[in-house]
Simulated assay, not measured.
Amino acid sequence: MRKLLYLSLIFVLSFSLMACTIVDDNKNYPETVTITQTVTHATSSTDTNKSNETVDEVIPTNPKNVAIFDFGVLDILDAIGIDELGIENLAIVKSNVPAYLSKYNVDSVTNAGTLFEPNFDNLDLFSPDLVIISSRSAWTYDKLKSELGGVAVLNVAVNNTKYLESVVNNITNLKKIFGGVESFDTMISTLETKTSEVKTLAQNSTFKALIFMTNGDDISGYGIGSRFGFIHNELGFLAADANFGNGDANTHGDIVSFEYIQTLNPDVIFIVDRAAAIGGEASIGVLDNALVNSTNAAKNDRMVLLDSVAWYIVSGGYQSTLTMINDVKALFVA
């Protein structure tokens, strides 16, 4: 009897040791990752005394409840698959949701607020493991921390002067957070390859380009360091005016005249229709006049209407950036 008890004890101990070994192996997968990021300290979106700081943010890996204030990140996670990433509950901004992401604009997904202002009552009930903010919501960092018990906050704001680098950095951080899924690497290589292909075409063409956003009867111009500077900085188009709109903070563009457009005589005019992007009536007709039509761009049918949702609403995504690249590449397709 003692021998049987002894053998049983050995079996139990052996099983326990094996179980411990399994647990120890699981420890190779970190429960948290540390992301170095720049955050904004502010009391409101209009705070003139706001400041920036580089911080090391500790973020739980494989978070189950994720609140997202950036359609670009929602686009990236959607391309891989929310379920595949292990996300069980989502909270998103439900205003101006792009059509291809409308499957998330449902009752089972929590309304996180607006792109500029969180709904803290909803978020408190949602109890997020991770909140993802961007440029429009950057000011909320401290308030999210204080209102939601020190919740992990990831800032995915894109640097307009380094658009592709910013997108790649965001995808890399998301890979660290979501268990090292290799599809993130595929995204990066695809974006880099396709960007390089268009850059070669653009540089060989030596086209000088202007970028405009229309909104009703208004037009504004964007240059090298602007929110649409990807066209110049990474896709390789020369700027018709190298000094125009050259600044990362130039999110609203600069006022331009039709006479200015005629004088510069660009080879290509890229157009973002803001009114259409937010569900209004198309406004590109404002550029249909004698002064604009006298340019090389108009005479050679090189006035390119960009996908306004991709460029204005979902900038920074994977699928949206592919759309942006293909918009520009279409210029060279017969």
Rank of each mutant, 00 (worst) to 15 (best):
L4Q: 12
L7D: 00
S8C: 13
I10M: 13
I10G: 00
V12T: 11
N26T: 01
P30G: 11
I35V: 14
T38K: 15
V39D: 10
A42E: 06
T46F: 03
D47H: 05
K64A: 13
V66E: 08
I68Y: 01
L77Q: 05
I80K: 02
E88W: 11
L90F: 11
N96I: 09
A99Y: 10
S102F: 02
D121S: 10
L125Y: 06
V131Q: 07
I133K: 06
K143G: 00
K145C: 00
L148P: 06
L148C: 08
V151R: 12
N155V: 12
N160I: 02
K162A: 15
L164K: 07
L164G: 02
V168M: 05
T172Q: 13
F178C: 10
G179P: 09
E182M: 10
T186Y: 04
E197H: 10
Q203D: 08
N204W: 04
L210E: 08
T214S: 15
S220F: 02
G221W: 00
S226K: 07
S226R: 09
R227H: 11
L235Q: 11
L238W: 00
G245H: 04
G253Y: 06
G253Q: 02
D254E: 13
V256I: 15
V256N: 01
F258R: 01
V268E: 02
A275F: 00
A275Q: 14
V286F: 04
A290L: 06
L291A: 15
N296A: 10
R302T: 01
M303E: 12
V304S: 06
L306G: 05
A310R: 11
Y312C: 07
G317H: 06
T321R: 02
N326F: 03
N326A: 10
D327E: 03
D327K: 05
A330C: 03
